[in-house]
Write a protein that binds this DNA or RNA. Structure first.
Lengths: 135, 135
DNA sequence: CAAACTGTATCACTTCAGTAATACAACAGT
DNA sequence: ACTGTTGTATTACTGAAGTGATACAGTTTG
């Protein structure tokens, strides 16, 4: 599994991991049921403390992205997050609000935002080999 | 100017101020050229240290929302942020990506996201007196 | 020029987020 | 049962973020 840590990006390591795994799942490059590297293995690979990986995995589990089986390992969860639709909608609403306020601040029109979203969605759904610059 | 601080929300005071002022500008309730309360006055009103307000105003100035005139006060900036379009697009792209990944994680389809955005935009653009629950 | 107002700068205190070292507990396979 | 693998828990260090006390530096205006 390809995960890259950018040391002094300001973004904490465990969060970089969380985000990248979410990307991988969202784009289908990690499939439900698939096993993730064990905490220690990934820790060694990325040269960080196992606790840091453990934390990332814990967050991913809370978010419903991943499922931990006691002594067997960590796996991509079967379906989407088990949160109630109402909860999810509330969360999504907050995100959308943030986005719209920022966009408005930056002087973008609604149409531009919508167009941009369709473009990015397209990119996310059809990840080609060339296209992996996510920063 | 109506700003409310929720003490232990986890969100730092200066950020709450920044966000609320951005909302007020984005929704047109604060107009370009309008003067903000002086640092000390707002500090007293909100019962926080003047430094905290100063910080909020500084961030807003950096973001291009606000303009400080040495000894005259702080005012809503005339036009949108002066950032180059390219910069703004890059920022917006990041936000959009985040949103889409989260939405996908939560099991939402593109159409639902788009619809939601149009709803929220409508709310932001037409703020009625009754409609000021932004949390 | 003194008083009253702007925003600014410096420094110190406190808390907490991020990370690490290290020891623990459960299960699988030989 | 032993060994090696999981993930877990406890504790401690460190640096940065958030806030505050307090002093500074320009304008305006009486």
């Amino acid at each position: 599994m390809q995960i890259h840590i950018h040391a002094q990006d300001g973004v904490p390591i465990y969060l970089q991991i969380v985000q990248q795994i979410k990307y991988l799942v969202a784009s289908g490059r990690l499939q439900p049921g698939e096993e993730l590297p064990s905490i220690r293995v990934l820790a060694e690979q990325l040269l960080v403390n196992p606790n840091t990986i453990a934390r990332a995995y814990r967050e991913l589990e809370t978010a419903g992205v991943v499922e931990k089986r006691r002594t067997a390992g960590t796996f991509i969860a079967e379906s989407g997050s088990p949160l109630a639709r109402k909860e999810r909608l509330k969360l999504l609403n907050e995100r959308v609000d943030q986005l719209l306020v920022e966009a408005s601040q930056m002087g973008f029109e609604l149409n531009e935002v919508l167009k941009l979203i369709q473009q990015r969605e397209h990119v996310l759904r059809q990840p080609k080999k060339e296209e992996r610059n996510h920063e």
